[in-house]
Amino acid sequence: MLRAACRSTVANGERAVWIDTAGTIVGAFWENGPYLVQPKSRQDALKGAEELLRCGGFALVVLDGTEPEGTEMVRLTRAVREGGGAFVAITPNPSLAKLRMESKIIPHSYRWTRGPFDDPVEVQEATIRVRARAAGWNAHADITVPVTPHDVRLSLEPGLADRRGLPR
């Protein structure tokens, strides 16, 4: 959802940046448009986030892989006010957040493409339950989204599992 928000921001002619501290973004599935920052440490991530927020050039800054704590969050909040953008921190401790959102995939909501032996081959879509909370407001929605295939391009038949190569 956040990546979609980034893309949406960029599509509206503004800038978005994703700070990927843990290095979990897969290059093959990254769509150009938002800036991607890969800091080397937690401190670099926080300093970078503060600088990018304060400059006012980014409508959306997403901090992933680093959980700001205490005074760090206060500093970032001030930078957000100064820059006028939106800041999203992926953290279990959303203190000082004006809007808190949590999402969870509903376990039995996955829709599979089945193979010739009725075994699951490819996930088509899944439903996410998103809950948003703000002061005096609490809402949720279930959103069904498609799943990006991991796409190891070895199979002769795209979409079918490739079981060649490892004789047992």
């Binding site: 290059g27 093959a28 150009n32 989204v145 498609p146 295939p149 391009r153």
Partner: peptide, 20 residues
């Protein structure tokens, strides 16, 4: 851009999410 980023052939970049 979608092609340059190496997304798979099966991906449908413009596909909209489906609301339950």
């Amino acid at each position: 851009k979608a092609k340059a980023s190496g997304t798979g052939a099966n991906e449908k970049p413009n596909e909209r999410p489906i609301l339950a």
